[in-house]
Design a protein around this nucleic acid. Sequence first.
RNA 1: GAGCCAUUAGCUCAGCAGGUAGAGCACCGGACUUUUAAUCCGGGUGUCGGAGGUUCGAAUCCUCCAUGGCUCACCA
Length: 495
Amino acid sequence: MSRFELDPEELQELNDQMVIRRQKLAELISQGINPFDADFVPTHHALDIKEDFAHWEGQEVKVAGRIMSLRRHGKASFADLQDQSGRIQLYVRQDLLGEEGYDFFSKLDLGDIIGVRGKAFRTKRGEISVEVEELHLMSKSLRPLPEKWHGLKDVEIRYRQRYLDLMVNPEVRQVFIARSKIIQSIREFLLERDFLEVETPILNVIAGGANARPFITYHNALDMNLYLRIAPELYLKRLVVGGFEKVFELGKNFRNEGISTKHNPEYTSLEVYQAYADYKDMMELTEELFAYVARRVCGTTKIEFQGRTVDLTPPWQRMSMLAAIEKYSGVSWERIQADPEGVAREKGLELEPARISTGSVVMELFDTFVEPNLIDPVFITDYPVEVSPLAKRTEGRPHLTDRFEPYIMGWEVANGFSELNDPIDQKERFEKQMEQRAAGDEEAHMMDEDYIVALEYGLPPTGGLGIGIDRMVMLLTNSPSIRDVILFPHMRPKE
RNA sequence: GAGCCAUUAGCUCAGCAGGUAGAGCACCGGACUUUUAAUCCGGGUGUCGGAGGUUCGAAUCCUCCAUGGCUCACCA
């Protein structure tokens, strides 16, 4: 029995269209035709021919791709062939292919991958086409395509079977092409400035560099648990200790947290470290990087996102957190310090009475009144030391840090600071974090003695920057959900 | 984790005062040698997400479950 024949059990799983395609496959085999013929190499993409038709008109071309539509007219037919570059029409005539060849063509289905050789020409209606003289079936498609006019809308299928989404929704393809260009232009920007691209471990003994719950995995030979990294930060700063003055890493981080339109358990970050620089230098680097990438990818620094336009042209506004709170909520730092409970009550902050402190009131006021208003790019600076365990204290104001977070469209898109390079202060900060951890805060930073040792050898004054690449891609591609910019967003198994 | 909404043919969707499922595309058969969502003639291909329940009768009402979306919470 041929492996292309179906047993009755298998047959029951298939719908009518799939059964018919299996039968066609079996028929081809029995006729001695290879339905997965690889003996054809295309010389052109659809777009090559269309963009330079004056040159290719009347010339022989070879194109390969997927049949996306068919218009049959008896002894002649039209088909649209889609390759990576786009679509080109095929014109197929019985008198050119012969009766046998035309019958073969007539049995093809939407979705089949074929290769054709023929002359490029323009039809009476003006459509640039290929007049088919030779035809290869390179991969028989055994399942029907989604609908040609409405495309594929079911988001669940779009994410789970992204290949279908890419096949039939051209705008989706554009988003991922843009994503690739964004990442490429980030590399260009940094390499031009003499940054060294490095790779640091994803399997970590200590998950450091951020406050987040890690994923845990297990190493058999070492018989130990390991964490998937939540940030590459501490490794990158070890490299600065080692003498690499400008480094960056683009890669995945993994955080064991909720999933939302802005959060995927694995996401891509850029981290950049520059010795002998501070957070102000990193702010300039950030705004220049965003503007460079926007110009490269969108051709402009004026970005439209969900009906609003923002201009990424540097310089961006700088505003301290407390100034921003006073501006948007009308509450001054003096009042928060004097009476946090009163402020919380007056502003209707949803804080448990036991949790009310100057720090929590500041954060809550910021989230409620400030964040939604930060549409145009702005750097919020001067974060409290308690929430910034890896950042250097501000000279003369030791409760604050030289730290910034840029906001665009109300989103926090990056985070940067002057790196804490005092090992004694760092150790104390870790110890504070350990206390919080002991008190039940699973996201508090872990102690990393080995990192302290590195700092004790001496980390030069260093500026650091982290950018959430997925959010950057969302902004630059006008995508409202992070799932629209991740090819295979995390989904629960179907059953 | 909570609330709301969704799940019907391969795809996009109708059908929901409870009466036994329908359209367009796709598909199958036929006509057609320059079409553009080709057209014309003929054909409905289904576990109405799953499991229970109410009822003479459930796609429709109820409960639970699954998956997804949105909002919130969590989370830089």
